[in-house]
Computed example of a mutant assay.
Amino acid sequence: MCGTCGCGEDDHISYTKPGAPHQHETEDHHHDHEHGHSHTHDQTGDHHHVHRNEIRLEIDILSKNNLTAQRNRGYFEALNILALNLVSSPGSGKTSLLERTIKEQKLIHQFYIIEGDQQTSNDADRIDAAGAPVIQINTGNGCHLDAKMIHVATKKLEVAKDSILFIENVGNLVCPSLFDLGEAKRVVIISTTEGDDKPVKYPTMFQSAQLCIINKTDLLPYVDFSMKKCRELASRVNHHLEFIELSVKTGEGMDQWYDWLNKQSAM
């Protein structure tokens, strides 16, 4: 996990609204990632000591994150904010899904968006053009968002009550699966161009999700992807998982997505 993948070696997390200057902040908890590494591997005893320290560090990181996530969740529930954590590999269509959703549903719902990427504000600029308030989190070397980032970004974005907050996580099906952000639901998105065995390659992500969106159905005639196999594998990993098949490009299946959103926002 993040204690060994290099995540957190860059202490500077930036929060940017389109048209505003970058705001860099040093997150104290990111220092924890660095201090778990030792270079004394010469003796077996030292190696075991380092291994135990890394395990304790990873547990501490997740425990601290989970506490902040619970506080986020309480805040969202108190203000009737539906927070949805969108996770996927890069290129699955998360941003395109949000763009179309905002354009077609902004008269029905009030949307706020938190964008997570290692660098650039490209996605935030697209969301801004679609017509929703957005803030970009650049994580530097970080491979995922965490609960403290969401706490800070929510305050800066000034998310209103009775709204829907989309959190577009960093494109990665590994580390984001371990970090609760305080969301009400986790939505995992895969596309038909990625292969139908994604659920068993990255089971932790699918185990932790409540909804699986299978995007780019318009490409099914041109790719080697079995919808039946993908759904069966995902259901084997998580038998409570719901599915929506859609194409953001053509609009096919988007009504099912909007119905799901309406149902969640009414709960």
Rank of each mutant, 00 (worst) to 15 (best):
N141Q: 14
N53L: 11
I61F: 07
A129F: 13
E99K: 13
Q105N: 03
S163T: 03
N85W: 06
L62P: 00
E115D: 13
A130N: 05
L97S: 10
I114G: 01
E104G: 01
I102S: 02
V152Q: 09
I113C: 09
K155T: 05
N85C: 01
S163N: 11
N66A: 12
P90L: 04
T120S: 13
N138E: 13
A147D: 01
Y75D: 12
S163P: 01
H48L: 15
G131C: 08
G91M: 08
L57H: 05
E115I: 04
G131K: 12
K161V: 09
G131W: 07
I164E: 09
C143N: 06
I127H: 11
A78W: 04
L62S: 08
I150K: 00
L79W: 00
D123P: 04
R100K: 15
H51T: 09
A69C: 07
N138L: 02
N85R: 00
I127S: 09
Q110S: 15
D60E: 14
S92H: 04
G116V: 03
V87N: 08
A124V: 05
I150F: 02
K94R: 07
N85V: 04
K148G: 03
G74I: 00
Y75G: 02
L107T: 09
E54W: 04
H48K: 15
L79G: 05
G140L: 04
G142K: 06
Q110H: 11
P133M: 04
V87A: 09
A124W: 01
D123T: 02
N72P: 00
R126K: 15
H49K: 14
G131Q: 11
T101K: 06
F166N: 00
Q70K: 15
I114V: 11
G142H: 12
E77S: 15
A132Q: 05
H48C: 03
